[in-house]
Simulated scan of single mutants.
Amino acid sequence: MQISLPQIIAAIVNFFVLLAILKVFLYKPVFNMLEARKAEIDQNLSEAERAREEAGELKRQYEVELKEANTKAQAIINEATELGEKNRTDLIAEARAEITRLNERAKADIARETEQAAQRLKAEVANIAIDAAESVLKREVSQAEHEQVLDQFIAEEISAGIAK
């Protein structure tokens, strides 16, 4: 087998034609596909990084909002506690005032009832004295009878006062 120059030139030309055909139909689409894939991967990575940063920012915002909510909740609890304490104090003061009013009214009622009882007793004593005087005037009474009537009158008044 002999190698001739036209065969070598034909082989070289065939090689370059094959190289040109491969470059046009194989390498360019494969490289374009690889470039597109690389661009897609870069885009996905940048989107993932942006999403991670957004998630970090959202987390920081949620932490701030959570702290604010906890602060507000504690303030509301403190305010409710203070309001409850104030209401309790007010209720105690009102109850004490009501007890004082009731106590004063009871004292006034007792004084009025005592006064009325004293007036009834005076009227009753006067009636009894008049009745006793009538019975004494109807007859002559000796000193002993007078003392006996007086003792009887006092005993009747005491027993009547106890019975009431």
Rank of each mutant, 00 (worst) to 15 (best):
I128P: 00
A160F: 07
T89P: 00
L58S: 03
N14V: 08
A55W: 10
D131G: 09
Q116F: 14
T89Y: 04
L58G: 02
Q43D: 06
N87A: 11
L19F: 14
E113D: 12
N32P: 03
F25Y: 13
R139D: 11
A111E: 14
K86G: 00
N127H: 12
S159T: 09
K86M: 01
I92K: 07
V30H: 10
I3Q: 07
A132P: 00
K86I: 02
T71C: 01
I41S: 03
D151T: 06
E47T: 09
T89A: 15
Q148G: 04
Q61L: 10
M33A: 12
L137V: 05
I21C: 08
I110K: 03
T89W: 02
E94Q: 15
I41L: 15
T81R: 01
N70H: 12
T100S: 08
I154Q: 06
M1P: 02
V136M: 14
Q116P: 01
S142A: 04
Q116K: 07
A10E: 14
V149Q: 03
A10P: 01
E124I: 07
S135H: 03
H146K: 10
V141R: 09
D109T: 05
V13I: 14
E79C: 01
A75D: 05
A36Y: 05
E115P: 00
T71M: 05
I162R: 05
S135C: 03
L26Q: 08
K38H: 05
K122R: 05
A111R: 11
F16I: 14
Q143G: 13
N78W: 00
A111Y: 02
E65V: 02
Y27M: 13
E40K: 15
E124Y: 13
T89I: 11
L121R: 14
L45I: 10
E98G: 01
K107V: 13
S4H: 06
K59E: 13
I92N: 09
L58Q: 07
R105D: 15
V30K: 11
L19T: 10
E124A: 06
I9L: 12
E63M: 07
E145L: 02
E85N: 09
A144F: 11
E94Y: 08
L137K: 08
A123S: 13
N14I: 11
